[in-house]
Design a protein around this nucleic acid. Structure first.
Length: 812
DNA sequence: GATTAGGTTTGG
């Protein structure tokens, strides 16, 4: 009986058990005896009910002791509580801020947000199985959900909610599997095949998983429906399987699914949030699972990073004859014959080899039949055979794909030379996806929201800018400026000038691409405007503090801007408060007030004035977007944790206006979004109706006339080989190179650690240069204006770091 | 509560 709603402090048949002893919030610690402990506090903040699965929820709230003695301790008598399962839903429905609750049967965990929210160093965890919450309901609340609508909420009738216990799963380490048993397991994928049709009634997935025990266990999954199979995108993904049978086959332990089987997968790379990949509507996923996934993610990243689990390479890093996985976008496709189809794909990088032209009937082509010469040079031709040709029938141009175990086949053919008389041998390349499923051969459509697709989209977006506009080749002088000094506005004429020069050099360079690898010394003497392959070691990189590598980029004016520090943003907020004037509200806006969650210790609780859209309210989405006035930065951040989208505004004579765009124009949870000062024409206006489409930063920016800035990473690397050293920029391909999204780096310590580990593996702080891995890189050289106005050559990395194992120990 | 597959290429 975990949840008890009491009206006027009582409810028929419900009593707070007498054996429980109240413990002051500031005395809660891991060492306190919690078995019979009871905490009491007023709910000062109630977060949204987050659905993690049907009938499974998480809700966070803050409770504060009202009657505590401040002199007892300096610890703030307020604490985060995290409620799980259906108990969370009951809490959400029945408790309003202002209500007093008591809780027992909780556990405590270290609060990851303590330094930020200045609350208690521990969180209270309340699971539906063990915890009891007693709620003393107050008068109808005037808090967020109802405040704006001025609607009474939560007239709770006294009730006792009785829930069946959520099943608790135990997971068997892969080293402890006993033949004949049925178990639940967690593991890291080290091999997998996409599901294929078996000779029986089902599709079959074959995979191999490992864990800390370092056993590698083969698994075979039979399911009739494709969506019931594990959604594995790459080695290193994490799988959780329930109800698999342990069998011996050829004296080896294997796992096969059995009745009631279910599987969930997770990205193996830490990204700040753990998203279960499943199409099951009844997945159980709780804090314990989150902890297990994060633990495995940490374990994976601690494994030898020099031996990457995945075989993914970008087009720019493809080696002839090699097998590899390619993440790409399908542009066009056509059948070639009864067993073979042509897929035309790209990934935003250019393969140094020219592709064999595959003749197909233009009438059979799905998607464009031709592309501009520039765009064509970025497109790969992939021939897929047999079962994959069948699978390709269902693919649609525009889809994002990962193709596993592709092979780059060099093809030599005779071609008439330009002069026409003699024929000369020309080397082309074409990718083959051979029939069958050996080595995991197959094609997978990646979901739009996957981090890899997001990165791919950005790489392609950068490219299409470049292809569409010769100005493309990077605003080098600006890169330099950003590098050493705060950004200044660009001199337009200077850009025009350097752009036109770059255009001509690009035009000369783009038709003939360098095929062979060059040394750094040769590269320095080679003509600019071309792509080159180099093999080099990373000698050093800047900045050493990763947060300094994070910048904001405007895709409209191509400027790179620094992320303003909190001090600067805080001063913009306080200026805005000071200069605020009374104004008449736009006709579409509704006004209300909300109480700010948890005031800092001792301060009176603040009531904020908010505005929201009549339209959104009519659609039942009043809380989706709030315009708030008169807050400090700190208050805005606190508020943002409980609402989807917060836009701080200020009132002037002319009405509501956005703040200075040096400050974020939008807050959502820990994420902040910025607009370009130069390119925005910001106005506070009502958002057009979007139907069921979720409000995201793009929609909001567009509606407000804000040119959204994109998070990017910018670094300067020094490469070295036996012949020379070379400074290169890592920018447009930084996400591909580092394997994280810049946006994640902006909010996630774990993503930052991931980057740090990658750089550390390529360029260890300790150890000799000779031991550093050798990297196969594609560099683009281009001319640009230097700091003092003279033209000079710059280099930028445009590939992922593919490492050459043969050269690992060779000395520079 | 049966059956399927049981990684491992070199090819169009």
């Amino acid at each position: 009986m975990p949840f008890h709603a009491l009206v006027d402090g009582a409810s028929p048949g419900v009593q707070v058990p007498l054996h429980l002893t109240r413990i002051p919030i500031n005395l809660i610690s891991t060492s306190s005896d919690l078995a019979n402990a009871l905490v009491k506090g007023k709910v000062v903040r109630k977060g949204p009910l987050v659905s993690v699965a049907p009938n499974d929820f998480i809700l966070k709230a803050v409770i504060q002791e009202e009657d505590s003695q401040p002199h007892i301790s300096t610890q703030i008598p307020a604490i985060n509580i995290v409620v799980f399962g259906e108990l969370a839903r009951d809490f959400s429905q029945c408790v309003s801020p202002g209500d007093v609750v008591m809780a027992s049967g909780f556990t405590v965990s270290k609060s990851p947000t303590a330094s930020k929210d200045k609350l208690h160093h521990f969180n209270l965890l309340l699971s539906e199985k063990d915890a009891n919450i007693y709620c003393f309901c107050q008068n109808p609340s005037i808090y967020p959900r109802s405040a704006v609508a001025r609607k009474d909420s939560c007239t709770v009738s006294a009730q006792i909610v009785n829930r069946t216990k959520a099943p608790r799963y135990t997971y068997t380490p892969l080293g402890d599997l006993k033949a004949g048993s049925v178990v639940n397991v967690y593991g890291v994928v080290v091999f997998f095949k996409q599901p294929f049709k078996s000779h029986g009634t089902d599709f079959c997935s074959s995979l191999k998983i490992t864990d800390k025990s370092n056993h590698s266990i083969g698994c075979t999954i039979f399911c009739e429906k494709l969506e019931e199979h594990p959604k594995i995108f790459q080695n290193g993904d994490i799988v959780r399987m329930h109800r698999v049978k342990v069998q011996l086959f050829n004296n080896t332990i294997t796992l096969v699914n059995t009745f009631g089987f279910s599987v969930v997968t997770f990205d193996g790379k830490p990204s700040g949030s753990v998203e279960p990949r499943t199409s099951s509507r009844t997945v159980h996923f709780d804090e314990e699972d989150r902890r297990r996934v994060e633990e495995l993610q940490t374990w994976i990243s601690s494994q030898n990073i020099l031996l990457p689990l995945t075989n993914s390479v970008s087009l720019s890093a493809v080696q002839p004859k090699a097998y590899f996985d390619l993440t790409c976008q399908l542009l066009a496709k056509a059948p070639v014959d009864s067993t073979c189809s042509l897929l035309r794909v790209w990934d935003g990088t250019r393969c140094p080899n020219t592709f064999l032209k595959v003749d197909v009937d233009p009438n059979d082509v799905e998607g464009p039949t031709t592309f501009s010469r520039e765009k064509e040079s970025f497109i790969a031709n992939v021939l897929v055979y047999d079962n994959h040709s069948e699978f390709a029938k269902q693919l649609k141009p525009g889809a994002f794909l990962r193709i596993y175990n592709l092979r780059a086949i060099p093809v030599t053919s005779k071609e008439c030379s330009v002069t026409g008389s003699q024929s000369e041998e020309v080397e082309h390349i074409v990718f083959h996806l051979h029939g069958g499923t050996s080595y995991g051969r197959g094609i997978r459509v990646l979901p739009e929201n996957s981090p890899d697709v997001q990165m791919l989209k950005r790489a392609i977006a950068f490219l299409t800018e470049d292809v569409g506009n010769c100005a493309s080749e990077l605003n080098d002088s600006e890169l330099l400026e950003v590098w050493s000094t705060p950004p200044e506005s660009l001199d337009d004429e200077a850009v025009e000038c350097s752009t036109s020069k770059k255009c001509s050099s690009t035009a000369e360079g783009s038709c003939r691409l360098q095929l062979q690898r060059v040394t750094l010394s040769e590269l320095k003497q080679s003509p600019p405007g071309q792509a080159y392959h180099v093999r080099a070691q990373l000698r050093s990189y800047e900045p050493s503090k990763l947060h300094q590598a994070l910048k904001l980029f405007c895709s409209k004016c191509s400027s790179i801007q620094e992320i303003p520090d909190d001090e600067r943003v805080a001063s913009i907020f306080s200026e805005a408060c000071k200069n605020s004037e009374d104004c008449s509200l736009p006709p579409w806006a509704l006004s209300g007030s909300i109480k700010l969650p948890l005031p800092p210790s001792g301060a009176p609780q603040r009531t904020l004035r908010v505005h929201l859209s009549t339209q959104l309210k009519a659609e039942g989405k009043a809380n989706e977007l709030l315009f708030i006035t008169g807050t400090t930065l700190e208050e805005t951040c606190r508020l943002a944790t409980g609402y989807k989208n917060i836009v701080p505004v200020t009132s002037s004579k002319s009405g509501l206006v956005l703040m200075d765009l040096s400050a974020p124009f939008l807050f959502r949870g820990p994420r902040r979004f910025y607009g370009c000062k130069q390119c925005s024409e910001a106005t506070v206006r009502e958002l057009p109706s979007r139907g069921d489409k979720l409000l995201d930063e793009k929609i909001i920016a567009e509606a407000l006339g804000v040119q959204l800035l994109q998070f990017v990473l910018l670094m300067k690397l020094q490469l070295q080989d036996a012949t020379d050293t070379l400074d290169v920029f890592l920018w447009k391909h930084a996400e591909v190179f580092l394997g994280v999204s810049a946006e994640d780096v902006a909010i996630s310590q774990r993503a930052q650690n991931c980057v740090h580990e990658t750089l550390e593996s390529l360029c260890p702080t300790e150890g000799t240069l000779g031991l550093r891995p050798w990297l196969d890189l594609t560099l683009m050289s281009y001319r640009g204006e230097g700091e003092e106005g003279q033209m000079q050559t710059y280099y930028q990395i445009c590939s992922s770091p593919s490492q050459d194992p043969d050269l690992q120990s060779q000395d520079a």
